[in-house]
Nucleic acid binder design. Structure first.
Lengths: 210, 210
DNA sequence: ATAAAATAGTTGCAATTGCAACAGACAATT
DNA sequence: AATTGTCTGTTGCAATTGCAACTATTTTAT
């Protein structure tokens, strides 16, 4: 759970109320299931109740990137996924998951009726998604693998509120999130360990940052 | 003007109405003026009426990146700028500009009063900004300079609705937007010209794409 | 009108990164 | 229990990219 979590920023009663209003449906997915495809006709969005989900992008030369990953409380799906794009996008379950699904357009229009709470929730959702997107840009603009790692680690520190944290995804997937070669990233992590910039045990990182 | 322009997607009367409601103020800036700093106390946002504006980021090792650029109709400022970040952000005028300024929080709360139009406008604004953000990620995840250029050119084609288009910023600034070295980018553009993938005359590009 | 600054374009060389190909550890499947 | 697959960790080598340095051209400022 992190500060971008809807389940953190919206109280449980409001969440239940809006779920009913939107006739939301909770579904389970197994590890490696494709939850959504770009070509899907529906405009579903989902909130992660349990598990880990990734939005991945495949370029025409087959390079995979992770555009974002979603932990408990994150929202994903149509409207939160690039549409006019050059690359193919999929949302896949990295672990067995539980997801609350509902319609994006209903989420966005429901609130024209009468319910002020829903507007607040929509704002929270969109702003949070936007901030996460900007965080990713901040990371990707780093000109070297080391800079990308450091920027990522700084954000993780802030998100988790601690110098020590677990990277939520595998190191392979982290490389795809940073858009760099995995082995080159491992090499850089090793260097940073040797220079005492970080302590790293697999995906457990301690970054004191000067 | 592009498809993300507010001045395209919202009619002039509504825009005037909401401007009054928000006591918006129109100001001019000269080329190279810093329009906003991250450290500014106010929560101003602006809509570009005339000119070109860039959101730039400076990392601790002095690397400059362009996070986004804003042409007529684009919205920028607090709420559309990374806040919790590692890098310093500035909004600067790349040309002499005219900008309509108003408060972000007033924009976001004004509509709790009574006006449904405003709610639509807010949605349009946020969704458009979000889509642009996602476009940038789509570009930055490219693993080579060529892939970044091709992805950027594809988006430009779609945005401008034409195989031929002018890059809105200088080639120097494009390199900063793609987060690559300028001379390396020039080298790659030259190669792509030689391979007849693009026609390039300075910032005028023709990209037929297969 | 002239000087200064910014942009475009180029290139050699060095550093970084990506690629390929491993091995070992761990998890999942049959 | 054995096998398959995924993830971590490593390394040599090649390709790409960044850096520095320079010229030419255009734009801006004095």
């Amino acid at each position: 759970m992190n500060k971008y979590s809807i389940l953190n920023n919206v109280n449980q009663n409001d969440f239940t109320e809006i779920s009913l209003c939107l006739s939301a449906e909770t579904r389970s997915f197994s590890k490696n299931d494709i939850i959504m495809r770009q070509t899907d006709e529906n405009d579903n969005v989902g909130i992660v109740k349990k598990g880990l989900i990734c939005l991945i992008s495949i370029s025409e030369d087959g390079e995979k990137s992770i555009i974002d990953y979603y932990e408990r409380g994150s929202i994903f799906g149509k409207g939160f996924t690039p549409d006019s794009c050059v690359n193919l996008h999929y949302i896949i379950a990295k672990e067995d998951c539980e997801v609350t699904l509902f319609s994006y357009s209903r989420l966005m229009s429901c609130c024209s009726n009468n319910c002020e709470k829903h507007r607040e929730i929509i704002n929270t959702i969109i702003i949070n998604s936007f901030k996460r997107c900007q965080m990713h840009i901040d990371i990707l603009t780093g000109r070297s693998i080391r800079r990308k790692l450091i920027t990522y680690f700084r954000y993780m520190k802030e998100l988790k509120g601690n110098d020590s944290f677990d990277i939520p995804v595998s190191l392979s997937d982290l490389a795809d999130y940073l858009s760099v070669d995995r082995s080159a990233m491992m090499r850089e992590i090793k260097k940073m360990k040797n220079e005492n910039i970080i302590i790293a045990n697999g995906g457990r990182i301690t970054f004191s940052d000067i």
